[in-house]
Design a protein around this nucleic acid. Structure first.
Length: 596
RNA sequence: GGUUCCGUAGCUCAGUUGGAUAGAGCAACAGCCUUCUAAGCUGUGGGUCAAGCGUUCGAAUCGCUUCGGAAUCACCA
């Protein structure tokens, strides 16, 4: 049991004894004492005024005195208004430090045979264009959430549903047939996803031309959009695809493979991966079957034109289309099919969808539909919704060419990291290969941290003109802190210092004590980040810890400390900070270099 | 118009189940490299937590109203 829980438990006992009242342990507020006050943990005593019928100060006095008797870790206390500040013994801090150094996985809960399985879907790209900044946020959040849930003891499966069919890919295919002149990634040197994206743009351009021509001939915009030859051909192609037309299927396969190769490269650069990939071309038919079943069981209904609908008015929502009049499936149909397949494949107890907040409504509906279809897990699905990434001028628009491509951004970040590092002389003692690797870690770290430190629900602004920060609250700052610690530790090793457990009776200072207690907060931070699906909590914890350590680093000597026991202690403290930073940043998918 | 989300310093953002004097970074200004890595440290200035009302011993946090912004309400995925 950790110290906070124990204190809370003690308070319950004390309250029972003093005031003869029952109080739940999880309602006792025990928090790390703020730096400006003396103490390690603080109990808010306002909560007990009604029970005790006394002033918060007196209650603090009384509880404090009793706690002193029953908890040997509590050495003293003080009271400021309604706040009872407990001062823990230095022994407690030192044994906590020993525990952290001893346990490489401090704060992590290991999954067992019986742990529940959480499946996390993220990324879910369309196959008609390259990944952009918005996808980066999705991928980073998805990966990080998966790591955080693993650390919370879940078995985790990362999955991706690839939107590989539909009118969008037909548009690229058609444009490539008409204007491609046999261009391939091999003969053009273009990355596969960019090549396919290029023809998607060409389709759009040509389509617009046709629309404008038709409008000038007197059609309304609406009519022109529907009757332009290109869109008709694309629809024809989709129909042919659905009917298994050999030629169309072959072209489809070929171009999708180009895209997958491109995506694989981007995923690898980003450091994200998947345990199981689903393709909509495999799941949409299953979805249709499920909808047919729902129709047969009168959960859904058919309109005169033949289209199938779900009536959600009893859930205060609208009607929802599930199958078009011509029998083809829509987005929702596919998601039902995908869910069915997944639950057939794995013993999932919780399903998480990492998808942008523009689809809040969609997932609200999906949960209800799955529930209606009799899937017990439907209602409990989690839509991990996140806000959009905006540019200073507003949303990214492909038409205006303001889309920030993932690959470009990654390359730019790494390049900036390389230039900056070189300028300030960080690479003087590194080989070129080491320098490149370090720049990769720093550039990518800066990008990941910049995105993950923001609370997921919020829209965030990204300014491509101002490069992402390498100072202050940033990954490079944390990486730098880690590198410094590693440097101190390796110097200690060079000097033949062998670290051992810290003795209990050391006279450590307040800053050191605070640092240890902060390290002790790591398990709580993981629990909270898991419960709230918030990598941002981890990011900000890493920053706090790094900042705290940097101050410590400046104020106290480590290697030059003359008392050998104290030197050992401080080196152990360094070890613990480095270890926690590495584990915590690992939850964000951010690497920490030993040198920089 | 209905629904959902957001609004905290000039800018970008933290602020944990309601708790102490609302915090960082960037930008500005002033210091600190003969001392374990200056991507660092110290200090100064900067706030009606969008506005109002309410609940509470206590509200940036909870509730209601108003204002501002975004998303969605597609036979697009």
């Amino acid at each position: 049991m950790n110290i906070e829980k124990k204190i809370a438990q003690n308070v319950v006992e004390v309250v029972k004894k003093l005031y003869n009242a029952d109080f739940e342990a999880n309602k006792v507020l025990v928090q790390q004492t703020k730096k400006e006050f003396e103490g390690d943990f603080t109990i808010v005593t306002f909560a007990f005024t009604k029970i005790a019928g006394k002033s918060p100060e007196i209650i603090g006095q009384e509880i404090g005195a009793e706690l002193l008797k029953i908890n040997e870790n509590i050495e003293n206390f003080n009271i400021v208004k309604g706040f009872l500040n407990l001062i823990l013994s230095k022994n407690q801090s030192i044994s906590l430090l020993n525990e952290i150094v001893d346990n490489q996985d401090f704060g992590f809960i290991k999954a067992t045979e019986n742990s529940p399985l959480m499946m996390i879907e993220y990324s879910s790209p369309n196959t008609n264009k390259p990944l952009h900044l918005g996808h980066i946020r999705n991928n980073l959040l998805g990966y990080s959430i998966a790591e955080i849930q693993k650390a919370n003891g879940y078995k985790v499966l990362k999955t991706n549903i690839v939107n590989d069919r539909g009118i969008h890919i037909c548009k690229s295919m058609l444009a490539w047939q008409l204007f491609g002149n046999g261009e391939t990634p091999e003969n053009s040197g273009l990355k596969g996803d960019f090549l396919v994206g290029k023809y998607y743009v060409i389709f759009d351009k040509e389509y617009k031309k046709q629309i404008n021509e038709l409008i000038s001939k007197g059609l309304t915009e609406e009519e022109a959009k529907k009757s332009a030859p290109l869109i008709l051909d694309a629809q024809k192609m989709l129909f042919a695809w659905e009917n298994g037309d050999k030629e169309v299927r072959e072209l489809w396969q070929k171009m999708n493979l180009w895209v997958y190769a491109g995506f694989a490269e981007t995923y690898e650069k980003l450091g994200v991966d998947f345990d199981k990939i689903y393709y909509e071309s495999d799941t949409y038919l299953v979805g249709k079957q499920e909808v047919e079943r729902g129709l047969a069981e009168e959960i859904f209904y058919k309109k005169p034109d033949g289209s199938v609908w779900a009536d959600l008015t009893s859930d205060k929502l609208d009607e929802k289309l599930l199958l078009r009049a011509d029998g083809t499936s829509v987005y929702m149909t596919q998601d039902i099919g995908t869910a069915k397949l997944r639950y057939n494949d794995f013993p999932i107890s919780k399903m998480v969808y990492v998808v942008g907040n523009e689809q809040n409504y969609h997932f609200q509906v999906l949960a209800i539909l799955l529930d209606k279809l009799g899937f017990e897990w439907g209602k409990s699905l989690v839509h991990f919704s996140y806000g959009m990434v905006e540019l200073p001028e507003g949303k990214m628009k492909s038409r205006e060419g303001t889309v920030v491509d993932a690959d470009d951004l990654i390359a730019e970040m790494i390049d900036t990291a390389y230039q900056t590092s070189k300028e300030i002389g960080k690479f003087n003692e590194l080989t070129e290969n080491q320098a490149l690797e370090t720049a990769r870690i720093i550039g990518l770290g800066a990008l990941k941290y910049f995105i993950l430190k923001v609370a997921p629900v919020k829209n965030m602004t990204f300014n491509p003109k101002e490069s992402i920060d390498f100072n202050g609250n940033s990954a490079p700052f944390i990486q730098y802190t880690h590198a410094r610690i590693k440097s101190v530790l390796s110097k200690a090793a060079e000097n033949g210092i062998v670290l051992e457990k810290c003795a209990n009776n050391l006279n450590i200072n307040e800053k050191e004590k605070f640092l240890i207690q902060l390290l002790g907060q790591f398990p709580n931070t993981i629990r909270e980040a898991g419960a709230n699906f918030s990598p941002a909590l981890i990011a900000n914890y890493c920053y706090d810890l790094s900042k705290e350590f940097n101050q410590f680093y400046h104020d106290f000597s480590i290697l030059k400390e003359e008392n050998p026991q104290l030197k050992n202690f401080r080196l152990q403290l360094c070890t613990a900070v480095a270890q926690i930073l590495k584990n915590a940043m690992g939850l964000l998918g951010i690497e920490l270099p030993d040198k920089m």
